[in-house]
Design a binder for these strands. Structure first.
Lengths: 136, 136
DNA sequence: CAGTATCCTTGCGGATACTG
DNA sequence: CAGTATCCGCAAGGATACTG
């Protein structure tokens, strides 16, 4: 059975939050859910400051296009800082902003929870994946 | 300046997590980032058990199509439980699963952080939104 | 009431080729 | 090296109409 106080606590917290912009939260999660965003934030969080190509090297599968796109997105979101040294050949480095580090920090407990409950998610997938996966 | 120990703590935690499936985390966030997922989870978390139409009434803007789609998605993800009473006229109720309540709980600190840092996000938007919003 | 069935637009993500 | 420029397929999201 579920802890009732947990639910009530959630209620109180959610009510307080509902007053603010609900779209902002979804916005952040939408961008965070994009294919490469989490990986880049994670990589920059671990490595500190990296060049464009170096990020690409550490994240197998990403194309230059998507890397640039995602980095620009993260920059617009204020999570990543871009340093263009205006040299020839070009040298550009990316690093997490304080906001980016903050997000990374906030994400960690969530990630751990997801992994702890991976079985639960997979179980749900199997229950429904076989039955009605084909119609979507 | 940013707390260095924070970064190192993040590093350690992230390294531990990287070993596991990175796609799963992104998967959860992708679904959570979908247009109506958060709102539904929040609504069900606060209200408990609701009928299809009642959810729609509490979330202005959602169409029946998207409501059904999102609910089905959440059901497949194991976050929401669907009760079909097989009556006529139809009566179907939705409620959060334990996993759903768990996710909601995990989300709350993240949401609070997002709202606390809303100024930071908006500031970033304004800095870049004006300059290069037109080319995307 | 609780959905499906269509049709449409938008944006993500990828492949490939090119440029300063 | 750090990008752009084009091309494409796919899925999210929305509008509208219909059904058991």
């Amino acid at each position: 059975m579920i802890d009732k106080t947990l639910i009530e606590h959630s209620q109180a917290a959610c009510d307080a939050l509902s007053a603010d912009d609900d779209g902002l939260k979804r916005d952040v999660l939408t961008h965070a859910g994009n294919r490469w965003s989490l990986g880049i934030v994670h990589t920059l969080g671990v490595a500190g400051k990296l060049r464009h190509a170096e990020i690409g090297r550490r994240m197998s599968g990403v194309t230059q296009r998507m890397l640039t796109r995602t980095l620009r997105q993260l920059e617009r979101d204020g999570l990543v800082i871009r340093h263009d040294y205006r040299e020839m050949p070009p040298r550009v480095e990316y690093e997490l902003s304080p906001l980016g580090y903050g997000l990374l920090t906030q994400m960690i407990p969530l990630w751990m929870w997801v992994i702890e409950n991976a079985d639960g998610f997979r179980a749900a997938r199997e229950r429904f994946g076989d039955a009605e996966a084909d119609d979507e």
